[in-house]
Amino acid sequence: MKVLQVNGVTKSFGDVRALKGVSFSVEHAEVLGLLGPNGSGKSTLMKIIVGILKPDAGNIQVLTTDVGADPIRVKKIVGYVPESPRLYEFLTGTEYLDFVADVHELDADTKRQRISESLKALDLDGRENEMINGYSQGMKQKLAIIAGLLHRPQLLVLDEPLNSLDPRSARIVKELIHKLRDDGVPTIFSTHVLDIADAICDRVIIMANGTVLEAGTPNELRTKAGVSGSSLEDLFLKLTGGSDTRDVVEALSR
């Protein structure tokens, strides 16, 4: 069953064409990795999927809802964590989570239970009554992840979710993605850490310059590119044209 269907999505910012007719779909209980160099359009695509940006052309369907037609409905069923999330710095951790839970109209008992459990799971208990401006980047990232999961979304969209996380928290997030997959909840996430993508993604999409270069399982892509047996990093660099790094290293170390 398709949970997400992206059809010919195009988006421009002035003269810059960020996305050029991107199409793909995400199945029930699937973990999809979005890979691509900086500026390839991954974050823009994610913002369009969760309904905070409008595409110039194309459409997106989450389950049975068209994002353009009913973005509020989509926001109720999608969990989103942006890259380097900016939170309300003047709130405490729990006040922020309360805010998110109330916006999703969770009842008091559910709210209390989910927030307490999540804070404990991600080692934020004991620090939850401090203002967010005193949090480290990693703590803010954890808080954003908790916020994205509070309403138990049916599709999870994570933009570089493991940025700034300590190894234990990163492991928890990876296991969480697996657990959600086991429960049938699909996840789309972008990352630059290709080993992680290799380890936890059922399928990956490699993007560059606003287009999809390749899509498939990591092994399928290796075979297709004729680099079977090598790492996903080699495959990625081959596809995105960044494989010759020796000159750069030489220049930097000179």
Partner: peptide, 14 residues
């Protein structure tokens, strides 16, 4: 709201 305004955009707020 500043740069944290994404919270409003991403939330189901009419």
């Amino acid at each position: 709201e500043g740069y944290a305004v994404w919270n409003l955009y991403a939330a189901p707020i009419r």
